[in-house]
Design a binder for these strands. Structure first.
Length: 428
RNA sequence: GGGGGUUUGCCCGAGUGGUUAAAGGGGGCGGACUGUAAAUCCGCUGGCUACGCCUACAUUGGUUCGAAUCCAAUAGCCCCCA
């Protein structure tokens, strides 16, 4: 029996957007451990922070004693969910899909426990769809889908009204996802599907299908989408999505993303994405209101998230990098430390000889490092006091850099302005 | 097919023969302030080892001591007549 009231917990975190039958669902969850599933689209080899919310949702169910199923859409991914998409999607190639599924699966393992009584399951709907013949599918599943109802779904209507139109393939997407629910219900006793609020149409389609095909009542719930206070989707930066894969988004960049969440959004993120408890949450909310300048909540959010996704060492390197990049002196460093701290920073190789003799002229160095497009731009930066070598302001236009200006064995750290870093590497 | 207009730096937009590398605004980049925020204020914003030189106002050629500014041709855009 679950020790804490899960629905209550989800409620205060704001994770419940819509539920098909809340009293019924509550009774079900209280009676005995249940199985719940959420589907994930394998559109890339890594998950991004948008999917993290769903994974945390599954995790919360698991911690309350239920069994989570993370369903990777190997089959549905071949079709493409038209929900919220303004245009027909390009189909992913088979190999691409395989690679994506492998990458995504690996990441899911750190969110869910695959051991114990309520071990999570990782399934791929391709496994049961691949052998299904078209004729059989139409007879079993298609027969139970009134076109009138399908036409009423928001995802379909939106596209039919637009110039982009909707192909038969994407129109059929709903059937596939609905059938997943029936399959999981039959094979794994799964009675609950969750998802983002944009999935409401697909979720309810599955519930209808289960009633028609199995004569069973199953349940659906959706979580709100992770959006900023001005309505945009979270997890996007100018340079693209924020990924969970450290190859795509370094721990430092990941940490910074959360650190920079606005005051308006920070508490929501903590509630949705972390396991920070009510008591601490309230304290942080209070701090944000009374002393926003300290960024207490942002700091806590960034720490929690980075530690959870990238582990202790990931967090440490993110913290060290942040400390160094925002003001710290750079001296007595070694190459390894610098490479770690400046993992995201562009670098240029230069010949070691440039530092010998007269040395390398700073103006030239800033150009070489890519921080200035021309000598004039570099000169201006220096004149304005916006040029730094190893985080120390350059004041002399005619300064020449020599070996003693290296921050470590082979690296020199250049900076223009507050945040623009570049490295020059002088390998031997 | 005939007539008229327009073309300026990253963008918008002044400038109609002589301190014009070209007003003003936007954007961008720095600096100060701040909370790694927002707002605000200040500076910079063609190139060059640089108080000078070079290249620039659609393109090419011309007039002139001197042109973004005048002329001609070409191209793009816009409008009117047929």
């Amino acid at each position: 029996m679950p020790e804490k009231d899960l629905i209550e917990e989800l409620r205060w975190r704001g994770l419940i957007h819509q539920v098909t039958d809340e009293p019924g669902l509550k009774k079900l969850l209280d009676s005995q451990p249940q199985t719940i599933y959420i589907g994930f689209d394998p559109t890339a080899t890594s998950l991004h922070v948008g999917s993290m919310m769903q994974l945390m949702l599954l995790r919360r169910f698991q911690q309350a004693g239920h069994r989570p199923i993370a369903l990777v859409g190997g089959a549905t991914g071949m079709i493409g969910d038209p929900t919220g998409k303004s245009e027909e999607r390009n189909l992913l190639s088979g190999e691409q899909l395989q690679a994506n599924i492998a990458g995504v699966e690996a990441q899911m393992r750190q969110f869910l426990s695959f051991e114990g009584d309520n071990a999570a399951l990782l399934l791929n709907n391709f496994d049961w769809m691949k052998g299904y013949s078209y004729l059989e599918f139409l007879r079993d599943v298609g027969k139970n889908f009134p076109v009138g109802t399908m036409m009423g779904k928001e995802s379909v209507r939106a596209r039919l009204g637009s110039d982009a139109g909707l192909s038969y393939t994407e129109f059929s997407y709903m059937l596939l996802q609905a059938y997943d629910f029936v399959h999981l219900c039959r094979e794994h006793g799964c009675l609950i599907q969750a998802g983002g609020s944009d999935q409401w149409g697909n979720v309810t389609a599955g519930i209808d299908l289960a009633r028609r095909m199995l004569g069973k009542q199953v349940f659906g719930m959706t979580a709100p989408l992770l959006t900023t206070s001005d309505g945009r989707k979270m997890g996007k930066t100018e340079s693209g999505a924020v990924w969970l894969d450290r190859q795509r988004t370094s721990p430092y960049a990941f940490y910074q993303y959360w650190f920079n969440v606005s005051d308006d959004d920070v508490m929501k993120c903590i509630a949705y994405l972390t396991e920070i408890e009510r008591e601490e949450y309230d304290a942080l909310a209070e701090m944000t209101a009374s002393d926003p300048g300290r960024n207490t909540a942002q700091k806590r959010l960034a720490e929690w998230m980075t530690q959870f996704v990238h582990g202790e060492d990931g967090l440490n390197s993110a913290l060290k990098a942040s400390k160094t990049l925002f003001g710290g002196e750079i001296e007595a460093m070694d190459d390894a430390m610098l490479n770690e701290i400046f993992a995201d920073v562009p670098s240029q190789e230069m010949a070691r000889e440039a530092l010998s003799g007269e040395g390398l002229w700073v103006v030239e160095a800033f150009q070489q490092a890519g921080l200035a497009k021309s000598g004039g731009e570099a000169r201006r930066a220096i004149k304005d006091g916006g040029a730094y070598i190893n985080n120390q302001r350059v004041t002399d236009m005619n300064r020449h850099l020599v070996e003693s200006d290296l921050a470590s064995e082979t690296v020199m750290v250049l900076r223009k302005g507050r945040k623009n870093y570049a490295l020059l590497r002088f390998s031997r």
